[in-house]
Design a protein around this nucleic acid. Structure first.
Lengths: 238, 238
DNA sequence: CGGACCATTGATAATTGTCAAAATTCGTGG
DNA sequence: CCACGAATTTTGACAATTATCAATGGTCCG
């Protein structure tokens, strides 16, 4: 299983600085909180939490990325979030006392900072601005969920493919003189499970876009998009 | 447009008691906050907020119910939430400063309690327990969204119909000796826009369930379900 | 280089959406 | 209280989209 060791080792360089919810705290407060944090590490493919697990800490992603997903009884997977550096989860369960409502699995090697229930609650009462930051962050996340729901609910598959490309370009894209290069966070199957369609459908749509010259596969995980505007019109800007 | 008058009129009987996020406050604190609240009223079909509107207050539903939804450019509607007594919205926009990300329309006559941005923020800083309550409530709402996303993403229409019946039975159902009577919060079209399917598909599935004796339409807005277990197996309990 | 895994393609079936028409329901006013 | 008209709902026929199954091809890593 996963290593874990106290945060003293990570000095100032790790976690705290990357975590937006702590960004309003001064150096001394940061130091205080840092003593409370435990670190964990996971390899690609390892599961951080299973749907239904009791959670007793908030987990903050410090390095790498992970997918949060739900499975139906017949094995179909719906991906809800892609968590990366600075994202956190488990906060709901601390207050409501309910078990996790999704599983979280490492997409790459992942390092986390964990804060126990009690420590986290104390933090919120001592620093109301952290609570406000969390509310803001949850709001952002809800907006993304709402958009995803609309997307899956009323848009056709082409729109959704366009939408996911925009989203990934924003989060994982780099621009160069030939266009935008996106390093996809997951496989075709992952994309399918994110969009709520079949694996094969994603393949077909990608091939189609490739034939039309709108995207160029560099390899399975990287694609080049010469003209982002075309993607926007496929996504059917809302 | 809508009436509005100060909360002094509503005495203790209205709003505050119904609103879970204020439930931890004592009588005096309640009285203080009450002075800050403005009331509004809306008729059925009126819009409380348009997608894209700047919001400068948190709106708490005091009476009636409303749907929150997004429209695509080509007029398709996806319903995200049904807000009823005690639910609130607009909190995200206050902190992040962004415009509303959905429209809200009254499904019946609606009365609201509004708290301005400034008042709400002060409240959060003076009463951290309110912030915690809000985080809990947002967590509940996110869990519902996550379930809805999974539902639309990977479940077939029968499952979804079953799911919505369970949800409505829970929120709007009453039991009697013949079974559970559900008063549906919206029309067939509304149900369709909630489930992300076509109006006609909802009609067909309801007819089918009626033929199988699993549901009985009392009228367009009320259905009787003799055996809830059958609905659960249709929903494909997760 | 080999093998496991992942991605693509084709053929076909199943599901749901769309359009059009008929039937039902609901609210209003006489 | 009934009748009428508008709005909503149901039903049918058909088209479009996507899922499924199966086979092939490609890629990555030890």
């Amino acid at each position: 299983m996963a290593d874990h060791y106290n945060c003293a080792k990570c000095k100032d360089k790790l976690c705290m600085h990357k975590v937006p919810i702590f960004s309003s705290l001064d150096a001394e407060d940061l130091r205080k909180i840092m003593g409370l944090i435990n670190h964990h590490e996971y390899k690609k493919g390892e599961t951080l939490v299973f749907d239904g697990d009791e959670m007793d800490c908030v987990v903050i992603i410090n390095e790498g990325s992970a997918k949060a997903y739900k499975n139906t009884v017949d094995g179909r997977e719906q991906i809800l979030y892609v968590f990366s550096e600075g994202d956190f989860f488990g906060e709901q369960n601390l207050f409501s006392g309910q078990a996790s409502t999704y599983s979280v699995e490492a997409l790459q090697a992942v390092k986390t900072c964990n804060l126990s229930r009690k420590q986290f609650q104390e933090l919120l009462y001592s620093f109301p601005e952290i609570a406000v930051k969390i509310i803001v962050e949850l709001g952002t996340r809800m907006t993304r969920l709402e958009n995803a729901l609309q997307s899956i609910g009323v848009r056709n598959v082409d729109n959704r493919i366009g939408g996911i490309l925009l989203e990934f370009a924003d989060k994982y894209g780099t621009k160069n003189e030939t266009g935008t290069v996106i390093r996809l966070p997951f496989s075709r199957e992952g994309i399918a499970n994110y969009l709520g369609v079949a694996r094969e459908t994603v393949s077909r749509k990608f091939s189609q876009l490739e034939n039309e010259g709108i995207i160029h596969s560099l390899n399975n995980k990287e694609i080049l998009i010469p003209d982002m505007n075309k993607i926007e019109s496929i996504a059917g800007i809302n």
